[in-house]
């Protein structure tokens, strides 16, 4: 056998096979990229640094915040709403015998707990999980942001809700109803990431907590294996394309956070559901968007 000649033929054969396989890999990656984001092999079109900022500006995205440097692989998580123990919450707020319970008509298991001393102070605990507290506002000026946050923190500690896990501070907004006040937002945290469907919003007016609404989600397991998620730059490009942004009418991005998304209505309609990783994008005008970090689709 002429080894030199055979070796030459083998080199040609494997070179041709490599070219074929390379074309196949490229085609598969392109097909998958149109469906879900794939980590780029060598170069990233939306790479970090100045080039990324320039590319975003050309797409109509003005950054007013720093972007997260990395995007890890993440799984889907399966969650369910965790109903609260209404009796315990009422005892903590109103005292051992300081309340009466009124059942919700047409919703067995849901109750409104009324303060015996001040019947307009009410705590509603729905069997699906949501908690709602209402107290009439007193007179006085708007609280300072730091004071509002301290009042909200203290109220949640007194209420002892949620029973476990971690709520993290998630910003302040002016109160939506008339009069001056602030809403302190909290978001549920799971394994160090926000789970945006679990939250508490505490309204503070004139030195009093006047309203609380909240939902707590319990993570019951993984919904699948970990998958790469797209970087924040890529998510912003998808959002800009969806919103029709351009340099003349840019999106002014105030905050970008990686977490998990759950529509608010799920607690009322579902027993258990999966949540997907999302980039939450908050704009300067206050609007908030959730971009699916697997697919780049806007969650609605």
């Amino acid at each position: 056998m002429d080894w030199a000649k055979a070796r030459l033929w083998l080199i040609l054969l494997f070179a041709a096979l490599d070219v074929y396989l390379l074309v196949q890999v490229r085609a598969e990656q392109a097909a998958w990229r149109s469906w879900a984001w794939v980590p780029p092999g060598v170069a990233n079109s939306a790479s970090s640094g100045q080039a990324a900022v320039r590319q975003l500006a050309e797409a109509g995205v003005l950054l007013e915040t720093d972007l997260p440097a990395s995007a890890p692989s993440l799984p889907l998580w399966t969650v369910r709403a965790q109903p609260a123990d209404g009796t315990t919450l009422a005892r903590r707020l109103f005292g051992a015998d300081g309340w009466t319970a009124e059942p919700w008509p047409g919703s067995p298991g849901s109750y409104t707990y009324v303060d015996r001393k001040a019947p307009q102070v009410r705590l509603s605990v729905l069997r699906e999980g949501p908690v709602d507290y209402q107290e009439p506002a007193g007179s006085g000026g708007a609280p300072a942001p730091e004071a509002a946050r301290q009042l909200a923190d203290a109220f949640l500690r007194r209420l002892g809700w949620p029973p476990g896990g971690e709520l993290a501070y998630d910003g302040l907004d002016p109160a939506p109803r008339e009069g001056s006040g602030l809403v302190v937002h909290y978001v549920e945290m799971f394994q160090g990431r926000p789970l945006f469907g679990g939250y508490a919003a505490v309204e503070v007016r004139a030195g009093e907590v006047t309203h609380l609404e909240g939902v707590w989600l319990e993570v019951s397991g993984r919904g699948g294996s970990s998958r790469p998620v797209m970087p924040a730059e890529e998510a912003l490009l998808r959002l800009a394309a969806d919103r029709g942004a351009n340099p003349a009418q840019p999106l002014r991005v105030r905050e970008v956070r990686l977490g998990y998304y759950s529509p608010f209505y799920r607690v009322y309609e579902a027993n258990r559901w999966d949540v997907a990783p999302v980039w939450r994008v908050r704009l300067a005008d206050g609007s908030v968007f959730y971009v699916n970090a697997y697919t780049g689709l806007l969650e609605k």
Partner: peptide, 17 residues
């Protein structure tokens, strides 16, 4: 990439957005 949802009326749905 598909999320599974078990509704209270027994319906099961899958969605990818």
């Amino acid at each position: 990439l598909v999320r599974r949802v078990e509704l209270v009326d027994g319906e099961v749905l899958f969605t990818d957005g």
